[in-house]
Simulated scan of single mutants.
Amino acid sequence: MAFVATKGGEEAIAAAHAWRADRRHGDGQGCTLKQATTSFGRAIDRVMAEGALYDPDLAARALLQAEGDLVEAAFLLRSFRATRPRLVDSLPVETGNMRVQRRVSAIFKDLPGGQRLGPTTDYSHRLFETDGGDQRFEPTLTDPPAETPCRIPGAIRILGEEALLEGVPLPHDADLPPDLSTTPLRFPAERRVRLQALARGDEGFLLSLAYSTQRGYGNTHPFVGELRMGEVPVTIAPPELGFEIDIGSIVVTECQMVNQFNGSKVAPPQFTRGYGLSIGHADRRAMSMALVERALRAEELGESTGNPAQDPEFVLSHCDSIQATGFVEHLKLPHYVDFQSELEIVRAIRAEATMPTQHRPTQHRQEGDDDLV
Rank of each mutant, 00 (worst) to 15 (best):
E254Q: 14
P184D: 08
V232N: 06
P144L: 01
F261G: 03
E11H: 09
A348H: 12
V292W: 01
L207M: 07
P361T: 06
T130C: 15
E94V: 12
L301R: 07
A2E: 13
V346R: 11
T140C: 08
G306K: 00
R78K: 08
D134P: 11
P334I: 06
T6K: 15
V292T: 03
Y123R: 09
E166M: 05
A12L: 11
A348N: 10
S105P: 00
H335I: 10
L159Q: 07
R99G: 06
L195D: 07
P184N: 05
R347Y: 10
P112Y: 02
E313Q: 15
D110K: 07
L301D: 03
A290C: 00
I345A: 14
L301C: 00
L316S: 07
C31T: 09
R61S: 09
R103Y: 08
L291Y: 12
F80V: 11
P85E: 00
F339E: 12
T140R: 07
D283E: 08
D69Y: 00
A62M: 04
E166G: 09
G160C: 01
E344W: 15
P269R: 00
A16N: 10
E226A: 04
Q135T: 09
E313V: 09
P178V: 10
L241A: 12
A15M: 09
R42G: 01
R126F: 14
L185Y: 02
P239R: 14
E352T: 13
A210N: 03
H330P: 10
L207I: 03
L241S: 07
T38F: 08
Y123C: 06
R24I: 01
P356L: 06
F80Q: 14
I279G: 00
F108M: 08
L185R: 02
V71G: 09
G26T: 13
D179M: 05
F243L: 08
C31H: 12
R186I: 15
Y123P: 04
R360A: 05
A282R: 11
E72Q: 08
V252A: 03
A74L: 02
S79P: 02
G274E: 00
R284G: 09
G276P: 01
Q101H: 14
P233T: 03
L185K: 04
S79N: 08
H359Y: 15
L33H: 01
P188A: 05
G118Y: 01
A197H: 03
G9R: 07
I250P: 02
P239A: 07
M1L: 14
F223D: 10
E226I: 06
Y336A: 12
F75Y: 10
P238T: 01
L207H: 14
T220G: 06
Q196A: 03
H172F: 15
R78E: 15
S278I: 02
R200C: 06
E162A: 11
C255R: 01
A197M: 06
L77T: 00
R103H: 07
G68W: 02
A298W: 02
N262S: 13
